[in-house]
């Protein structure tokens, strides 16, 4: 359960930071009048908070999966699935997709239609290629003697990549919906709030994938073993 607890420490830090701005030590019964609310600067649209909180929830989900995976590997002695090299390529694709999404935001803010269109297409292609690549890894593993109902480490790979892929797919659908809604209108800036949320979501999914990828490589368990050795 180390992974989920580490994740919760991060969440607790963020929550603590926010709580520290809420004047928790004030004496509200002594104060009358209209008090200013804390933490309502520009850019804190409800949608932004919504995606941020949702990413925390999804992060909890993946951290939980990571925890279960690490627990599993610890109990069955180090039976990891050898990941094909294709996974590295997929990771690079997701990284690119995240980068292109940032370009989308930048060009939407600047209002340059051509750049916006190009980076949107690039981001979509990179993301779809990532998904296709993951599917290819599945096929390779299944035919390579690691089927879904094989050793638990293999089942974990399918489950983790599958749930992550579903989240990516959801993101693409949302992105498509936003673009279609504004397809007719000439104003590129109308896209900005929507694509900004998408970009945030993409970055979050990239971060989760990097963590999960490290765990699936067995680095998490190696790290834990190292800690244990250092303690004893």
């Amino acid at each position: 359960m180390t992974v989920i607890l580490a994740f919760l420490v991060l969440v607790a830090l963020a929550a603590g930071l926010w709580l520290s701005q809420q004047r928790l030590a004030s004496k509200p019964w002594l104060e009358t009048g209209i008090a200013p609310l804390a933490g309502h600067g520009p850019g804190r649209a409800p949608g932004f908070i919504f995606i941020a909180v949702f990413l925390a929830v999804a992060g909890g989900l993946f951290a939980m999966l990571g925890s279960a995976f690490v627990m599993q590997i610890d109990e069955t002695p180090w039976e990891l699935v050898p990941l094909p090299g294709r996974v590295w390529l997929n990771t690079a694709l997701l990284l690119l997709a995240s980068l292109f999404m940032q370009f989308v935001v930048i060009s939407a803010r600047a209002g340059t239609t051509r750049w916006l269109r190009a980076s949107l297409i690039a981001a979509s292609i990179a993301t779809l290629a990532f998904l296709a690549g993951q599917a290819q890894v599945w096929i390779a593993l299944t035919s390579g003697g690691y089927p879904l109902d094989g050793p638990p480490a293999a089942s974990f790979f399918y489950l983790i990549t599958g749930l992550h892929g579903l989240h990516v797919l959801g993101g693409i659908i949302a992105l498509a919906a936003i673009c279609l809604r504004h397809a007719g209108g000439g104003d590129v800036k109308a896209l900005l709030p929507g694509v900004r949320l998408c970009a945030l979501y993409w970055h979050g999914l990239l971060a989760f994938w990097l963590m999960l990828f490290a765990l699936l490589q067995g680095w998490g368990n190696a790290f834990l073993a190292l800690c244990r050795a250092a303690v004893t």
């Binding site: 809420q22 004047r23 928790l24 004030s26 509200p28 009048g33 209209i34 609310l37 804390a38």
Partner: peptide, 8 residues
């Protein structure tokens, strides 16, 4: 709403 801090 306006004035509704967390501590209220």
């Amino acid at each position: 709403t306006r004035g509704m801090t967390m501590m209220r």
